[in-house]
Design a protein around this nucleic acid. Structure first.
Lengths: 340, 340
DNA sequence: GTGAAAGCGCTAACAT
DNA sequence: ATGTTAGCGCTTTCAC
């Protein structure tokens, strides 16, 4: 069976009605206006002929593509798999499809990538690549395109964002460490250009104060990758030799911290505790298994898609603002009581 | 600037020509038939007005969507990130976009997912979810839709496939182990329903024979996941207590093997060597760092997209068949000389 | 070399 | 309740 050879005209002819009547009968919105018997007949014929509406023709008229674009900063990052899965799942429920665009974080290809999506007349966009200052997002929003941010958020408060609750997540980690007895805790921060980097850093300071942590030095890594984590942790340990724990702003930074801590002659967990953030797959298998904040990424994707669909359906009723999803803590062996 | 408000008609009026002339001037294919001066003028006006052709309108006429669909069995599997990145990159170069559809491997949603893509009139499809017997792929191919398989392949020899060279990959591992002195090697096979499971299993047997391995028992896991790997390895060790090495058909199975080997009282690397396949991210950080076959997944995606684009451009000239990409071996500490 | 006109498949305003 | 007509924005015959 070749899809798409049967057009509305064929159905109409076979059912003995005009195409417009067939169109109305087939469309749930307008179906009520047609004689129930006619509806039944058209439906039966369409079914029998295997009629499939042509999405391009429909889209040309209705100015809707039933397609949503998603901009990912780095598809290879295991973080985004679950988000994509969640988005795709939710969209599929409503008959929408997902157009994926990958941005190389090194060059700034986001401009062309976003434009390519916009040119395709996507009905909305999900942006997983937001910087704190992000003119692309502003532009899209100004153009009136429904946009939702996910995972990270820009300063554009008008644009809804579904992100992890970094304040709560860092709180989980800090309470855990303080409970174990730590009072000198360092933070390997992510880039301040991303909401996640900045947010976790601020949360760290706040919780340090609240929980009576004596010493809470911070060093910022240039990117959320392993080698920067290594370098920054070295510096952190050199300058603050009494630290008993390191809170990293993501798992890769923590892995870098693992190496730096080992090289400094400490045993991770015993000498210095280290924590990660995100809890990407396999963190339970590194040595030692990593204590890390787990963010519900799939759910994040589902939520982002839901909000976007609402905006597409009725852009007025959706109040902008952020939704913070509550993380949990996966406690493993990279954290233990401080050395005495 | 709102994208898409300017239509061809606007450009034509402003340039003082008919829309059809403007269309010809803008289209590289037909451009040669138009007066060069007119072309220049139309181009200039289009540029100045920020004209962007409407892809739906064009697609409706040309019956091309400039869109390719990709079916992924499990977006959350880190394997597929690089493949998607490669595909997306290559497609973007030619102005094509990527529609992603995720199939839950548990239920058989691939039917609806593939149909959804087909209804959108994608110009071609990349299937990463092939089973060895796969009626969906056959159906698409029979309908005349350009289709390429990636990572795994079905028995449909008419449909091009870009996959890893499992024979070479297993050879790399076997030669490495035999060189270290191993002669009793077990294989934790993946499901025989997938070309990867079957291919690696057959390659294992062949290399075992060729390299003079005395003992080469095989146990097949029900899926490429960790727990099945654990269970199957336990059985393998119980039934063949003299094994000194385990070759797993993928990394997760190997991780399961890690656990089973440890529980059996052996030290991985020292007592029993274990190897993985795929070398997904973080395998260098598990304990001990895993020796694994590395498959060039990004390249695989690029190649698949290239072949598909060729087929779309001219379905006749493309000879079907498989392309096997050569893997490499990441030697780490999970392999060493056999215990004496 | 360019314009006129038709039409891709569908939906929507208007008429009956 | 249904048919008529127009048109979404573009490409593509067919004239001239």
């Amino acid at each position: 069976m070749v899809i798409g050879r049967i057009t509305l005209k064929d159905v109409a002819r076979e059912a003995g009605v005009h195409t417009s009547t067939a169109s109305r009968a087939l469309n749930p919105q307008t179906q009520s206006v047609v004689n129930p018997e006619t509806v039944a007949r058209v439906l039966e014929v369409a079914q029998r002929l295997g009629y499939r509406p042509h999405p391009l023709a429909r889209g040309l008229r209705t100015n809707q593509t039933m397609t949503v674009g998603m901009v990912i900063p780095d598809v290879e990052n295991p973080l985004f798999g679950p988000i994509i899965a969640g988005v795709e799942h939710r969209l599929g429920t409503d008959g929408y499809s997902l157009l994926i665009a990958n941005t190389d974080p090194r060059d700034d290809s986001s401009l062309t990538v976003i434009d390519a999506l916009a040119e395709r007349r996507v009905d909305g966009m999900i942006i997983a690549s937001a910087s704190r200052v992000d003119e692309h997002i502003r532009r899209l929003h100004d153009q009136g395109l429904p946009v939702v941010q996910v995972n990270r958020m820009s300063n554009e408060v008008e644009v809804p964002a579904i992100v992890g609750d970094d304040h709560a997540g860092i709180g989980l980690v800090m309470e855990h460490l303080v409970e174990l007895g730590h009072r000198r805790i360092g933070h390997v921060a992510g880039p301040g250009t991303f909401s996640t980097g900045l947010g976790r850093r601020e949360a760290f300071l706040e919780w340090a104060g609240k929980l009576g942590v004596h010493e809470a030095p911070i060093e910022e890594a240039e990117s959320f990758r392993m080698m920067p984590g290594y370098r920054v942790t070295r510096r952190l340990i050199e300058r603050n030799p009494d630290l008993t724990a390191i809170v990293a702003a993501n798992d890769l930074l923590a892995l870098g911290a693992y190496q730096a801590v080992s090289e400094a002659g400490f045993t991770i967990g015993q000498g210095i505790s280290v924590t990660g953030y995100n809890d990407v797959p396999f963190m339970q298998f590194v040595q030692p298994p990593m204590t890390a904040v787990r963010v519900p990424y799939r759910k994040m994707g589902v939520e982002a898609a839901s909000v976007l669909l609402e905006m597409i359906a009725d852009s007025e009723t959706v109040r902008p603002g952020a939704v913070w999803l509550t993380p949990t803590l996966s406690v493993r062996e990279s954290t233990a009581r401080p050395r005495s």
